[in-house]
Design a protein around this nucleic acid. Structure first.
Length: 166
DNA sequence: GCCAACGTTGGC
DNA sequence: GCCAACGTTGGC
C-alpha cells in the first residue's frame, strides 16, 4: 500500500504547449482514440509536473505556441499515469538522451486525450484578463511547456472560450 | 528574423 | 560551486 507523497492538493488542471506546425489540436483529434503520448518534454520542471502532479482525468488546456496568433485551441485530459518517454531511448529520435537508460529513465510523459475543441482564446485575451494574472503562461519570460492551472483559472478560460458544456 | 529570457553545460 | 558561454523558447 503506497502512501501518498504529499498532503498538498494537486493542481486542478494543466496547460500544455505544442507548436501547431509540429503537432496541433487537430492532430490530436485525428489520432486513434484521440489520444497521444506527450513525448519530447526535456525540461525538468515540466517533467516533474507530469510525473508527480498529474492524475488520470485531470483537464488539460491545449495551447498553440510559436504561431500567430498563439492561444488555447482545445480541451483535453490526462489519460494515463506517467511512464518513461520512449523517445529518450531511441538513438534515431531527435529527443534521444544518451544519459538515460531503461533502468534509469530521465524523462517521463503521460497520454493525453482530446475532449473537445474550444473557440480559440488568443494569448492576448488571456493577458488582458485580470483573473489570469497569476497564470505562469502570461508572466514575462515564462517558457514552461507544462504548467498547473487552478480550478478558478480553468473556469475563466472556459468562460473566455464561451464554453457552456463544462 | 530579432532578441529577451531562461535553462543547461562545462571549465576552473 | 561559480559563472560565462551557449542553445532554446517563443512572442513579436
Amino acid at each position: 500500500m503506497a502512501k501518498k507523497k504529499s498532503d498538498t492538493p494537486k493542481p486542478y488542471a494543466w496547460l500544455m504547449k505544442s507548436e501547431p506546425d509540429v503537432y496541433g489540436f487537430a492532430d490530436l483529434l485525428a489520432e486513434p482514440e484521440q489520444t497521444t503520448l506527450w513525448d519530447g518534454v526535456r525540461n525538468y520542471q515540466a517533467r516533474n509536473f507530469m510525473r508527480d502532479g498529474m492524475q488520470v482525468g485531470d483537464p488539460v488546456l491545449f495551447y498553440h505556441s510559436n504561431c500567430r496568433p498563439p492561444g488555447i485551441a482545445g480541451l483535453a485530459k490526462v489519460a494515463s499515469e506517467a511512464y518513461a518517454d520512449p523517445t529518450q531511448f531511441d538513438p534515431d529520435d531527435a529527443h534521444f538522451d544518451p544519459k538515460a537508460s531503461q533502468d534509469d529513465p530521465r524523462w517521463f510523459l503521460v497520454d493525453v486525450q482530446a475532449v473537445r475543441e474550444l473557440n480559440f482564446v488568443p494569448l492576448e485575451t488571456l493577458k488582458n484578463e485580470p483573473r489570469l494574472a497569476e497564470l505562469p503562461l502570461v508572466k514575462r519570460g515564462n517558457r514552461l511547456s507544462v504548467m498547473p492551472v487552478s480550478k478558478e483559472q480553468f473556469e475563466v478560460v472556459l468562460e473566455l472560450a464561451g464554453d457552456t458544456d463544462a
